[in-house]
Nucleic acid binder design. Structure first.
Lengths: 349, 349
DNA sequence: CGGCATGATTAGATCGATCAAAATAAACTG
DNA sequence: CAGTTTATTTTGATCGATCTAATCATGCCG
């Protein structure tokens, strides 16, 4: 291990007291400029780094941000969290924070972990993902007055007030739908999840809104299913063989979109003569757009909506630091952030 | 925040001294059984949790394991690290450790981060991934006597000795090749990376060895390219249209395999009459096997080799804990671990 | 029953930083 | 120039745990 350099070593070298070293580093305004320089030089020469544990004992601040790493369920959307995590780690480091990981199988287990962590490592804040209706976690954290941000809006109107950063799913599906309308499609279907999930409802809403605005009635053009490739394929097949003349699909996830692609390629559906936009236009495969721009989308040439994850992570850190370091004025709370996804156009649409 | 419970509170409650509480928890053998019970009851009642920062100050141990989270380059293989990370977090928690993340753009930056972290948070150990020839990091850590394990073997024969856990890539490609041989294929090609990368050479070797053992000369049946889908497609196309009658491909990654699948489906190559195994057998698509069993493989039905990542992570933690907690005997160092990947058979082969 | 290992518990110091308050130096005021 | 005010630096205590060494019980033996 490297030899330890303490604040006392620096003090000795600079010919001042420990406290002056501390002040030079933490409250530069209070020390004379010349001594500050002298201290900084000593710090440099000795390679001094403040010991977090010791600082934490006195200040109660660990400069740690904790976040849960989920077992990537279906695997496809797991990469979203992964990319977010990377962005979070980078942004946090820039603000002098480190990211601590934990796992938990459900809300209750996660709250237990909160207690564990707060008792042992005392992270300064938590970042929550996958927020949902009636989230136990946010309520608990608010109750305990533990700082946190969620990546994802609080979906219920009655859900507790807290900081959040999110990506505007509706804006995304709206953009996707417009893209398809511009390409001449009219009967544009939607493949999503059963009502009740905030994220899913939001994404469906963007599609419906845009279609309606374009004079197309979305009724009957939507299907809901669980987030599995196979289920997406079934639902897409069902929608495509209906007599609504669906020529394009906007999907709530890349998993569903991949299923849709499979369905669209199944015999008797893709390349249907006379079904392309514009009536008797040339044969054309069913257009499909996914959501999240996962590696799978890139791999199979699926057009998809990309979330600005690094940006979202940076905003999370920014909100937390104003909450932790800066003094958030009571009258003027930090603003929540809603980011827009961007459409990555590939072969599928 | 929750009210803080210190060891003094527990001591008061149990009617003993602080030190006895500490002993009851850390050196149970030294305390009378009855008092131990009394202390444990007090701990339970008050919800006491040892403060890591305070403990760390005295013992110098943080119970933190640091690992770098990489920006998933091509996206496809990023999920491997993600799954490993999840396993690591779970295993570490079981042993009373937490995982701390950091990022770094290259070896040199990573070594700088080592210094930063060791000075500030004092992680007890590091887990390194993506080890490579002439790795600066392992040399530095060994020199500083900082405990660490690598997920990945030290590839050079002259590389420094340290703990590692790895997955036997050669065994994997050998199994894949056998699987293809059993299915009747003879001219089985290999798609990999340019020589020089330990991992890539290892995977190629397993294929070549197995083919040779089956009496097939692997000469000319191999192509090397960078790990991109498009490059894989080009290389596969090149190999397939040669006059060697290649009917199956083993690939060093899912990215390459995906490219191979595309190539195999390109007109004039797939379903080539008379080219199937057994000479004039029925038409058959080119078989493809990938490596890593990424979400993409699952999504497109690609047969692939799955690494036991959770297991690998667990072994990493096990090695570290014997190194840190247990007393690794000088004469009998902890054994490195080589795990076998398993073949996940899907439609592609 | 004194002398002494052995067992169980406790008091005091310590890790490295920061806080609070005191001490010292410099500057200002009438 | 004494009397303060202001700027700068220093001393001592403290955060919560563990280490070291000392204290207090017990049990055993000759």
């Amino acid at each position: 291990m490297a030899e330890k350099v303490t604040i006392a070593d620096v003090a000795r070298r600079a010919g001042v007291s420990r406290q002056t070293v501390s002040n030079a580093l933490n409250s530069p305004g209070v020390v004379r400029e010349e001594t500050r320089q002298r201290v900084l030089r000593a710090v440099e020469e000795l390679g001094y780094r403040v010991n977090q544990a010791a600082r934490q004992m006195r200040t109660g601040r660990s400069r740690l941000i904790a976040i849960r790493i989920e077992p990537d369920r279906d695997g496809i959307n797991g990469s979203v969290l992964d990319r977010f995590l990377h962005g979070l780690t980078e942004s946090a480091a820039r603000s002098g924070y480190r990211v601590l990981l934990y796992t938990a199988d459900d809300d209750r287990a996660e709250v237990d972990t909160f207690e564990d962590l707060l008792g042992a490592y005392e992270p300064d804040a938590f970042v929550l993902t996958s927020t949902h209706h009636g989230d136990l976690r946010t309520a608990w954290l608010l109750d305990q007055k533990v700082p946190f941000v969620t990546f994802g809006r609080p979906w219920s109107s009655d859900s507790p007030k807290h900081l959040w950063v999110d990506v505007d799913g509706a804006a995304g599906t709206a953009a996707a739908t417009r893209h398809l309308l511009d390409a001449g499609h009219r009967a544009i279907g939607f493949l999503g999840w059963p009502p009740g999930s905030g994220v899913g409802d939001d994404r469906r809403e963007g599609w419906a809104r845009t279609l309606t605005a374009a004079g197309v009635d979305p009724t009957g053009l939507s299907r809901a299913t669980s987030d599995e490739v196979a289920d997406g394929e079934k639902a897409a097949y069902d929608l495509l063989r209906s007599d609504l003349g669906v020529t394009a699909l906007v999907c709530a996830s890349d998993s569903l979109a991949l299923g849709a692609l499979h369905a669209a390629r199944s015999p008797g559906l893709a390349w249907q003569p006379g079904r392309g936009p514009g009536g008797g236009a040339a044969e054309r495969p069913v257009a499909v757009i996914g959501f999240d721009d996962t590696p799978v989308a890139k791999a199979v040439g699926l057009t998809s909506l990309s979330q600005p994850l690094a940006q979202a992570a940076a905003h999370c850190v920014a909100l937390l630091t104003t909450l932790l370091d800066g003094q958030a004025k009571p009258g003027e709370p930090p603003a929540n952030v809603l980011l827009e996804p961007s459409l990555v156009v590939r072969q599928s649409a």
